[in-house]
Design a protein around this nucleic acid. Structure first.
Length: 654
RNA sequence: GCGCCCUUAGCUCAAUUGGACAGAGCAAUAGACUUCGGAUCUAUCGGUUGGGGGUUCGAGUCCCUCAGGGCGCACCA
């Protein structure tokens, strides 16, 4: 926060000064941390840019500009360095005192209404680690947006009427010859995970289709019955989908991921969202019916000539097939319109479940809802978290809004895209999957629910947890922790490790998942952050136990004393902590959340070297002990807040 | 064929969006607490940023081009 103030003031000062000195107006001033602390706390290459325009030497400009420059509060000096950089140095003591009071205070925002849709797993099988990347990215985005002051609704879309569900229904009815009562028994059986059972069943069904193409008639019939909500089959589908959704929610809850609303495809159909959207699309001329050519009889969205689809061979997108049925894309446009409140009809809502923390999860319904349900939808901005393979569909949806004249909403339809999670051939083999000679040479293998190729989230968590628990047990032999305590610590560490792992890669990097890599608790990992935080907490706990006064209260902290002895290593903790809010905002702006984990990792590295070099508890000099404690406290507050933002738990001990 | 993405140390990734000497983790090697617990730290080794052109005071970053790899481009969802 202080840093933002300094940035603002400095930008203003420099702008006006450049104008008065050189008669030149600049629109932006780049202020950045210099590559090394020795160069200062803030720097601008302003004069390098100016040199070009003004045709003068950069250093000469910098000298003129820096002479008698009015410096903002907390800024002590300005120097000309390098090729002509202006480097500013802060009043370390004063800055530190002020920063202590504003650690991780967010940059203020307007507070708009937003929807983040994520997870969206087909309710027909267990969730795999590709779904987890989606959920962790989405959940972290939600947390960051809320931290920034936005009003966010978290939605998890349930496609309960699609082919994927239908295929599992077909498998139960035709392959296993089980009715709803038998399936219910399986669901209630505590010895089998129902979602795991369906994982295998689904890929068995896929194989069966491959060998018996005529069986696809079953799928068509089943799909039709589900959509028409007819009889036993539809009831079975609803039963299965619901049971699996509960499994998915339980899996996500292990990561502290919760939702506000489950919008269901079946309700979108029952409430005829598409019919209304179709009317609008027809009226606006955005879709037309082809009377000839290979799309004869289809209603298509003409995308030729629109900027986003230039140069495509076959840009037109079919929304209604010649047999009159609507495609997925069509339904998605209708749903996107609803999210912005642009469809003059809406859902009713009823309670789906309560979370342990009291939060209520709602689901949509086409029949009468609960009178005390909140209003959903009608957002100003919508984030759809969905992997890059659906980029084309997302662009079509966005274009649909634009063609309907909703320019602003089209621009606020944000596809938060990210690359897939794949498996290394080694991991695939370790899972017992058949890997061909050709596949073995590939960098990674795509996961596929249909083929049953993938790492299930719960398996990963379980593996991680047992490894972490083992480490805790090993490391805490003499502390006499109970099994429950050890289990809790193991769980927290596992979750921290996995959430971090899902965030640390840039979003358009394919994660070639490797068990060994994911299971590391060392170096660039979640547990490293947790360990650093546990360490700093330990310092203060021990101080309290031994009655050593840290003197961190406002009255005791003296800027002058701090200024005297803050070494570079100590100061860097404070300086970097102050950088974090801007990094978070940058991360959200660019939808690149890895910048946050990266900043935190570097900050933790700084702390760990500080920790080794500057003992606090046994420091005899009171002023020096206080200085060190202040830096540790800044780090402690930063990590507490930041890890909560990332939903990485802070264990009691490690 | 068209579009998007990736290529940086042996491996996995960063690089403040065009800025200062390209940095981390892992692996390897050598070290470090009777201290606030070593899931840590210190040091060494490791680079023609896939190749070639260009723009710029300045390019890993922007443009062109070539090569390799991945993913999309259904009357599937």
């Amino acid at each position: 926060m202080i840093l933002e103030q300094i940035n603002e003031q400095l930008t203003e000062t420099l702008k006006t000064r450049v104008l008065t000195l050189f008669g030149h107006a600049i629109d932006r001033v780049v202020l950045q941390s210099p590559p090394r602390l020795a160069m200062g706390d803030l720097a601008t290459p302003l004069c390098l840019e100016l040199a070009k325009v003004l045709k003068r030497k950069p250093r000469e400009l910098a000298e003129a500009l820096s002479k008698d420059l009015a410096l903002p509060m907390f800024v002590q000096s300005v120097n000309v360095e390098g090729a002509g950089y202006l480097n500013f140095r802060f009043d370390r003591g004063a800055f530190t005192v002020a920063h202590m009071q504003s650690v991780m205070v967010p940059i203020k925002r307007a507070g708009g209404r937003m929807i983040v849709e994520h997870t969206n797993i087909n309710p027909n099988k267990a969730a795999h680690i590709g779904h987890l990347r989606n959920a962790v990215l989405g959940d972290t985005l939600v947390r960051c947006l809320k931290w920034l002051g936005e009003h966010v609704e978290t939605q998890n879309y349930i496609d309960d009427t699609g082919v994927q569900v239908a295929d599992v229904v077909v498998a139960f009815e035709h392959l296993l010859k089980e009715d709803a009562a038998a399936v219910q028994k399986r669901i209630d059986d505590p010895t089998v995970r129902f979602d795991y059972f369906c994982w295998d069943l689904y890929s068995k069904m896929a194989n069966y289709y491959a060998e018996h193409p005529e069986a696809e008639q079953w799928r068509r019939d089943t799909l039709h019955r589900i959509e028409q909500r007819e009889g036993e089959t539809a009831r079975l589908a609803a039963l299965i989908a619901r049971a699996i959704v509960h499994r998915h929610l339980a899996t996500m809850l292990r990561f502290d991921i919760e939702y506000d609303l489950l919008p269901k495809e079946s309700d979108i159909i029952a409430l005829h969202f598409w019919d209304r959207a179709f009317e609008l699309l027809k009226k606006s001329g955005a879709v037309i019916q082809e009377t000839e050519g290979k799309h004869k009889g289809c209603w298509v969205m003409k995308l030729e000539g629109t900027a986003d689809f230039e140069g495509m061979d076959e840009p037109d997108k079919i929304l209604v097939r010649s047999n009159g049925t609507v495609t997925y894309t069509g339904k998605d446009i209708a749903y996107q319109l609803w999210k912005f409140g642009l469809l003059d009809r809406t859902f009713d809502y009823r309670k789906f479940k309560s979370y342990p923390d009291g939060r209520i999860l709602w689901e949509t319904t086409a029949s009468e809802g609960s009178p005390d349900a909140p209003k959903f939808g009608g957002a100003q901005r919508v984030f759809n978290v969905i992997d890059v393979r659906q980029a084309y569909l997302q662009r079509v949806v966005r274009e649909g809004l634009r063609l309907l004249g909703h320019q602003r909403e089209a621009e606020n339809s944000i596809h938060f895209s990210y690359e897939m999670v794949a498996l290394t051939p080694a991991t695939a083999e370790a899972l017992g999957l058949e890997v061909s000679e050709a596949d073995r040479k590939r960098p990674f293998l795509e996961m596929s629910g249909r083929k049953g190729v993938g790492v299930k989230i719960d398996d990963l968590v379980d593996a991680m947890q047992s490894k972490a628990t083992e480490a805790v047990r090993e490391g805490s032999k003499r502390e006499g922790l109970s099994d429950d305590e050890i289990a809790l610590l193991g769980r927290q560490i596992a979750i921290g490790a996995i959430r971090y792992f899902m965030l640390k890669f840039g979003r358009n990097k394919v994660i070639a998942f490797d068990f060994n890599e994911a299971l590391t608790f060392e170096g660039d990992s979640g547990p490293y952050l947790q360990y650093s935080t546990v360490r700093v907490e330990n310092i203060f706990r021990k101080m309290k136990e031994r009655g050593v006064n840290a003197r961190l209260d406002d009255a005791s902290i003296d800027a002058l004393t701090l200024n005297e002895g803050l070494t570079d290593e100590m100061w860097e903790l404070v300086r970097r902590s102050a950088d974090l809010p801007a990094a978070i905002e940058r991360g959200v702006e660019a939808l690149e959340l890895s910048v946050i984990t990266h900043e935190l990792f570097e900050l933790s590295q700084k702390f760990n070297s500080f920790y080794h070099k500057y003992p606090i508890l046994n420091e005899k000099d009171e002023a020096e002990r206080q200085r060190r404690a202040v830096c540790a406290e800044v780090f402690r507050r930063t990590m507490r807040a930041a890890l909560e933002l990332l939903a990485i738990p802070v264990p009691e001990r490690m």
